[in-house]
């Protein structure tokens, strides 16, 4: 158990505390200024890794949801919930950093032409609905199964939202702004990768800490039941 705990908590704790400040340092001290956007482009090293991390967390939540439907054990339900919870936290950060970038680049807080941002808006509404669904059902098998199925629908919704936004956009916004692209200088790319690793470590940390809290709460509840003589 201790080795496992180090892997899921201590390692990501150390990594995120090293890598995230390192990203800041690299972004401001090492990478050059972007020719078009200047200083405001620096947010790219945070905004995009946060967005990707958010997808990873939603994916983790969906995989655990599928595992729950297969195995039907509470642990998978808890993992799925915690994954989606941290995905939503990162998703909220995307919706905060996105408009900051948009304001600096285009002078408006919200740009309906930014594909990534629009998809996140859809996903944010969707995953908020996940929490509403979960908390309107009584704790039990039914709630866990319904949450798992809804989480799995996200697997369909994410690519469908991307496609839909793209199809609608070719028409509404002929010029599409793409962040980075293939022609990134090496210093940009490396900083981006370090930023991504930092955010992913932070995600693993958040998930494992929340899971540990949930497990402890479940264990306390179970002990209370044993004390009441229910032991089931």
């Amino acid at each position: 158990m201790p080795a496992n705990r180090h892997l899921t908590t201590t390692v990501p704790l150390v990594l995120s505390f090293l890598l995230i400040p390192l990203t800041i340092a690299m972004a401001f001290l090492w990478t050059g200024e972007d020719a078009d956007q200047g200083l405001s482009q620096k947010i790219f090293y945070f905004h995009v890794p946060i967005a990707l991390t958010s997808y990873v967390a939603f994916g983790f939540g969906a995989v655990c949801a599928a595992m729950y439907l297969w195995k039907r054990t509470e642990a998978w339900d808890m993992r799925s919930y915690v994954g989606i919870h941290s995905g939503t936290i990162f998703g909220t950060l995307v919706l905060i950093t996105g408009p900051i970038w948009a304001k600096a680049s285009w002078g408006v807080w919200w740009n309906w032409g930014d594909r990534q941002l629009n998809v996140f808006l859809i996903l944010f509404l969707y995953y908020c609905a996940y929490f509403m669904l979960r908390f309107s059902l009584d704790d039990g098998e039914r709630r866990r199964a319904a949450s798992a199925i809804f989480a799995l629908l996200g697997i369909g919704l994410i690519p469908m939202s991307f496609l839909a936004v793209r199809i609608a956009q070719t028409l509404i916004h002929p010029t599409v702004f793409t962040a980075g692209g293939a022609s990134m200088p090496n210093s940009f790319l490396l900083t981006f990768v370090v930023g991504l690793a930092g955010m992913l470590s932070l995600m693993v940390l958040l998930i494992s800490v929340e899971l540990r809290g949930k497990r402890t709460a479940a264990r306390v509840l179970q002990l209370q039941r044993v004390q009441r003589g229910e032991d089931a």
Binding site: I122, L123, L125, Y126, C128, A129, M132, L133, S136, L137, D138, R142, A146, I149, F150, L153, L157, M160, S161, L163, A164
Partner: peptide
Amino acid sequence: LALGARTRDVLLPVLVLPLLIPV
């Protein structure tokens, strides 16, 4: 999915509408 939810009538639009944005 919303069957058996306490606030089914409020919940259902919240569940469906984000899923229908691509449509």
